[in-house]
Amino acid sequence: MSDNIRLQAVYAPSEDVVAREIEGELILVPIAAGIGDAEDDIFTLNETGRAIWKRLDGRRTLGEIVLDLAAEYDAPPGEIETDVAGLIAELLKRRLVVVP
């Protein structure tokens, strides 16, 4: 995992984000100062991102999520780790996930 993201860490979606699955896409709308801004800050997650996001339940560690995904997608855990670390770093930067 990257320097800042550890396998033992646990994350959950921020309360200041609305996540909706629409037409097969998971769309995230951050709410800042009481406004969900469709102009600047809306994001969509690809299939990998969606699978990771759905497992960020505030209970499972990233390590558990990696093993779960590796089993489901029959992929090497190393590759999954890279994807998970990359997404978590991005979500943290945008304050879309928090440490519960």
Binding site: V18, R20, I22, E23, I42, F43, L45, E90, L91
Partner: peptide
């Protein structure tokens, strides 16, 4: 990875509804 994108009519409606139901405003 997250990426910005433009909204279709269906998505705009669904997102506006979701955000407003949370009691927040929606800017578009």
């Amino acid at each position: 990875m997250p990426q910005t994108f433009s909204l279709s009519g269906t998505k705009l409606l669904a997102l506006a509804r979701a955000v407003l139901e949370r009691g927040a405003s929606f800017r578009f």
